[in-house]
Design a protein around this nucleic acid. Sequence first.
DNA 1: ATGACTTAAAAATTAAGA
Length: 263
Amino acid sequence: MRLATWNVNSIRSRIDRVTGWLERADVDVLAMQETKCTDEQFPTMPFAALGYEVAHVGHNQWNGVAIASRVGLDDVQLGFDGQPAFNDVDEARAIGATCGGVRVWSLYVPNGRTVQDPHYAYKLEWLAALRNTATGWRDTDPAAPIALVGDWNIAPTDDDVWDMAVFTHSTHVTAPERAAFRAIEERFADVVRPFTPGPGVYTYWDYTQLRFPKRQGMRIDFILGSPALEARVTHGEIARDERKPGKKGTPAPSDHAPVFVDL
DNA sequence: ATGACTTAAAAATTAAGA
């Protein structure tokens, strides 16, 4: 089974690129983040035409997460227990489903904006709540293959950004964010890193400043697996080619590349 | 060259991204 995650940065403007990659890469399950649409606006037909069922949660033009699967899509859950709200608004940042025997969670961790912004405290609170709830999933059934995948908006080590000097006062690299990520990694391992050693290996490149052709990116998209899932991983990869511009007349790329594993 | 940011909402700009 091939399981992938991809921050698509608007599914409506990226639909042809997403379905095209699903076909070319022979993907069974795709977790998407930043669909940037409501459930009504989500383009389910192109997925259905390729044999994928889709579960999506999106409230407006912000956030939005989905799971597309051609190996079953059961027990869909919108949001995780204890997921914090931002300014009393529940955001579409987590969706879970069981696909081909694997419990998959598509996660879009809050950005944080700046370290002084309330969004940063929200980000840390969100990660702590996820750790707490996900630990419960694992402890309830230690043999369950669970995948926590998505855009984590954290570069866990200095090797995961192209130049630490540029990020001195930025979110994504602060000690509290890294500690929050490590606390989850203690229980759910990064199952892609063993196949994609760094430094200089990234999943995101800013649209500005020619960051992609200059290979100036960040590694912030991860597939974390419970011990039972980790034991089944045979391959991991970052589909860097999907960040390349399309030919004339084809959709622009997302600023994130897909990340996938084979089980 | 892969090339100097992109998206959605709304109707000119703004909010957001990381």
